[in-house]
Simulated scan of single mutants.
Amino acid sequence: MRALLVVNPRATATTERSRDVLVRALESAADLTVRYTERRGHATSLARAAAESGVDVVVTLGGDGTVNEAVNGLMTAPGALAGLAGPSAYRLPALAVVPGGSTNVFARALGLPRGWVDGTSVILDGLRDGRHRVIGLGRADDRYFTFTGGLGLDAAVIRRVEQARLRGRTSTPGLYVRSMAGQLLSGFDRSDPPMTMEIPGEAGETGLGTVIVQNTAPWTYAGDRPVDPNPDASFDLGLDVFALRDLRISATTRTVTQLAWRSGDPHGKQVVRLHDLAEFTVVSSRPQPFQLDGDYLGERQKVHFVSVPSALRVIC
């Protein structure tokens, strides 16, 4: 079995010593090549090249951003784009994820242990036993995502968090809470919600201030606590949507409180929840912050979302 280990050397939850231990462990189960990412987007090209060379499994050590890049490399490799019959999951290398970031939503949603040591043990057992799970992905225009995408408030909060991290701050639940409070107090699109959801064959939704798309549950974690506006979202189904019409401070605070204390049951006139969608388009009257899998990707006025079933095999 041939494997590629893609390592983000800036991953927050690992050290050089832990990476060495991981490499030795994986070498006991596979013919292993190790590559370190050098820039944003590098994991995409490494994973694509590995798929083209016939590698059996791509292992990532990093956070959700590294996983997202590797997934996009696999899904844009010639094997995925060949137009052959059957799902891409069986034409591509499998993916294995060793949690090394601050939150690791994708790995935890798969049921993997939070720590890299226990996560590595699960992956080694899966490699030796040939155990895997086939999952669906989401696609936003031409980019794939594993667990979430968003336009509006949540992406603006992620932008603030990334700016704070560039100034040396550590990613913590408290940083996200402070960033959300700062974004709300800035008057972000409260008076004129600019977004519309266009759903094929349905009436759609208008006057939306923020749109969160889930490919699985939970949406994210606040420390050990899952935050889960759509608990029925699943890797095995289409996409779920959680959107808010009203971004006034009182209404948004009420919804955030519901999410914090009654996870999975946000409600009210301002709340829109949609389940198991195959595709839809979000259109905005003005540019909106945009994120996929917790990475801020700039501003967009139109994004087409598609559910991609049976897209990938994951060792878990």
Rank of each mutant, 00 (worst) to 15 (best):
Leu81Pro: 12
Val57Ser: 03
Leu61Gln: 07
Thr103Met: 12
Arg273Tyr: 06
Val98Arg: 14
Ala94Pro: 06
Arg254Thr: 07
Asp189Arg: 14
Leu32Gln: 06
Ala29Val: 15
Asp276Trp: 04
Pro287Glu: 14
His275Ile: 02
Ala43Cys: 04
Val67Trp: 10
Arg248Ala: 14
Val256Gly: 10
Met180Cys: 12
Val282Ala: 10
Asn230Arg: 13
Gly149Thr: 01
Gly130Arg: 07
Asp236Cys: 05
Leu137Gly: 03
Arg248Pro: 04
Asp20Val: 09
Val55Ile: 15
His42Glu: 02
Arg178Met: 00
Leu137Asn: 11
Ala155Leu: 04
Leu239His: 04
Asp246Tyr: 12
Asp276Phe: 08
Glu299His: 11
Gly201Tyr: 08
Gly41Val: 13
Ala30Asp: 08
Thr76Lys: 12
Val314Ser: 00
Glu52Ala: 15
Ile212Gly: 11
Asn72Ile: 08
Ile158Ala: 08
Phe147Lys: 04
Pro289Met: 06
Leu5Ala: 10
Arg167Leu: 11
Phe147Trp: 11
Val34Ala: 06
Val98Gln: 08
Arg254Asn: 02
Arg2Phe: 00
Gly264Met: 09
Leu277Asn: 03
Ile315Tyr: 09
Arg160Ala: 13
Leu292Arg: 02
Val34Tyr: 08
Ser263Cys: 02
Gly187Phe: 07
Thr33Ile: 03
Leu26Trp: 15
Ala51Pro: 05
Gly201Phe: 03
Ser250Gln: 13
Val306Tyr: 05
Met1Tyr: 05
Lys269Cys: 03
Tyr36Val: 06
Thr12Cys: 01
Gly201Cys: 02
Ile199Ser: 05
Val134Thr: 13
Ser307Phe: 01
Arg286Ile: 02
Gly126Phe: 00
Ser307Ile: 01
Ala107Pro: 05
Arg131Leu: 09
Asp129Cys: 09
Thr76Ile: 00
Thr253Pro: 06
Ala77Arg: 11
Gly152Ile: 08
Asp246Pro: 11
Pro229Ala: 03
Leu127Trp: 12
Val71Ala: 09
Tyr90His: 15
Leu32Glu: 00
Met180Trp: 06
Leu277Trp: 07
Tyr36His: 13
Val55Tyr: 14
Pro194Asn: 05
Gly149Ile: 00
His275Thr: 14
Gln270Thr: 10
Thr66Phe: 05
Arg165Gly: 03
Gln183Asn: 09
Val282Cys: 08
Ile199Gly: 03
Ser179Lys: 04
Arg254Pro: 01
Ser284Leu: 03
Leu292Met: 14
Phe147Cys: 07
Thr14Glu: 05
Val241Lys: 11
Ala3Thr: 07
Val34Met: 11
Leu259Gln: 05
Asp224His: 05
Gly115His: 12
Val227Phe: 13
Gln258Gly: 01
Asp228Cys: 14
Val308His: 04
Ser88Val: 10
Thr216Met: 00
Asp31Tyr: 10
Thr252Phe: 12
Ala233His: 10
Leu312Lys: 10
Thr33Tyr: 01
Thr76Asn: 15
His275Tyr: 14
Leu151Ala: 04
Leu84Ile: 01
Leu110Gly: 04
Gly150Trp: 04
Val6Cys: 01
Pro87Asn: 10
Leu277Arg: 12
Ser263Val: 01
Val58Gln: 01
Ser102Met: 03
Ile315Ser: 07
Ala164Trp: 01
Ile315Met: 12
Glu202Asp: 01
Val177His: 02
Asn68Phe: 02
Leu312Met: 13
Val59Asn: 06
Thr253Gly: 15
